[in-house]
């Protein structure tokens, strides 16, 4: 029973932190994006605009929640939940800090597999939302989402395989341990740069963020799969997207940036959470920076890039990694 209680408490805290993080991530994105475009950004609601997420949330709660005629009701209402929930439960296996106090289920031996599976479920939400909306833009957005995510999931999975090979374990706690906490060169981003690059690119494609935001390409598809969603249903999609951003950043930090590792974590375990947060925030800022820089890709090039470049390179990377490990090259045992 105490185990169950502990897990519940941790989950509640985690969800609270994630939702707060989501709210302030939207503000951070708007602020940073504004600065990168020589604008000021939101600064009216509260000091420095810090109450902007609250204002946005309140606005969305009081918005009329329209259900268009002709929608497939059960699926239409299920879709936002299907997007938001997987984004949150990914965190169950991510070690947020050193020691069991900061970990929920990170020692399970199929952690990496669980992540790929859960991330794959999220695309169902997008595709079903597009299908159930009874709207051509939504349907096209959903269609694009499924094609895009299937193409890029392959590269992402293969880049995770390389990481799993390096750590010889699919448990995220072991993956962090394998990056030799305390030595920055042990991070997999230095020992697996190709996998890190592929993971970064495919993760952004999985998120359907710029430059891979064809799913909701405003100029062509209005809001894509979200076209017919309003009020809190829209907010759930939004939440799913941003929590997934945090989740993917946390995964990148865990797989390639040494997770919670850093100096003095043995003396003060709380520092490990700080290090992890810093790494996650750095990844998030990089994502926002990318959005401000790169234009949207053309659809056929997006598919071509996924199938003809990322997937073969990821396969080659797995093969080379396997050979290096089999040969016992220093750094690859």
């Amino acid at each position: 029973m105490p185990v169950l209680l502990e897990a519940t408490l941790k989950s509640v805290v985690l969800i609270f932190v994630l939702l707060t993080g989501f709210a302030y991530l939207t503000l951070t994105e708007r602020k940073v994006l504004a600065r990168l475009q020589a604008r000021i950004g939101p600064n009216r609601a509260g000091p420095l605009g810090l109450l902007q997420p609250v204002a946005d949330g309140l606005k969305l709660i009081f918005k009329e929640s329209i259900t268009p005629a002709g929608v497939d009701k059960p699926i239409y209402f299920l879709a936002p939940v299907l997007v938001a929930v997987p984004a949150i439960i990914v965190f169950a296996v991510i070690p947020v800090g050193k020691g069991p106090a900061f970990q929920l289920a990170s020692e399970i031996n199929v952690g990496a597999l669980y992540i790929v599976g859960v991330m794959g479920v999220a695309v169902y939400g997008i595709t079903l939302a597009g299908w159930a909306s009874n709207n051509k833009y939504a349907a096209l957005g959903g269609l694009r989402a499924s094609a895009q995510v299937i193409s890029y999931e392959l590269g992402m999975g293969l880049s995770i395989v390389a990481v799993v090979l390096m750590a010889s374990s699919a448990s995220l706690a072991d993956i962090v341990e394998a990056q030799m906490p305390g030595n920055i060169l042990g991070w997999f981003i230095f020992r697996q740069p190709v996998a890190a690059a592929i993971f970064a690119i495919t993760a952004m494609a999985e998120l359907a963020r710029a430059p891979f935001d064809l799913v909701e390409a405003e100029q062509e598809l209005t809001a894509g799969f979200m076209t017919e969603y309003s009020g809190m249903k829209f907010a759930l999609f939004f939440m799913g997207e941003y929590v997934k951003m945090i989740a993917v950043s946390a995964l990148f930090a865990t797989f390639f940036l040494g997770g919670w590792s850093g100096p003095f974590v043995d003396q003060a375990p709380i520092l490990s959470v700080v290090y992890f947060t810093i790494k996650v925030v750095a990844c998030l800022l990089l994502m926002i920076w990318t959005r401000a820089t790169l234009p949207r890709m053309r659809y056929d090039r997006l598919m071509g890039f996924g199938w003809k470049v990322l997937t073969p390179v990821a396969i080659a990377n797995v093969i080379v990694t396997a050979f290096l490990i089999a040969l016992g090259v220093p750094g690859y045992q």
């Binding site: 990168l36 020589a38 920076w289 990318t290």
Partner: peptide, 21 residues
């Protein structure tokens, strides 16, 4: 070109915003 693009965007942070209050 991608690296140059990223650098250009980052340089904008030092610029004064063109918008006004």
């Amino acid at each position: 070109r991608i690296v140059v693009g990223f650098a250009t965007v980052l340089k904008t942070v030092t610029r004064r915003p063109v918008t006004i209050q």
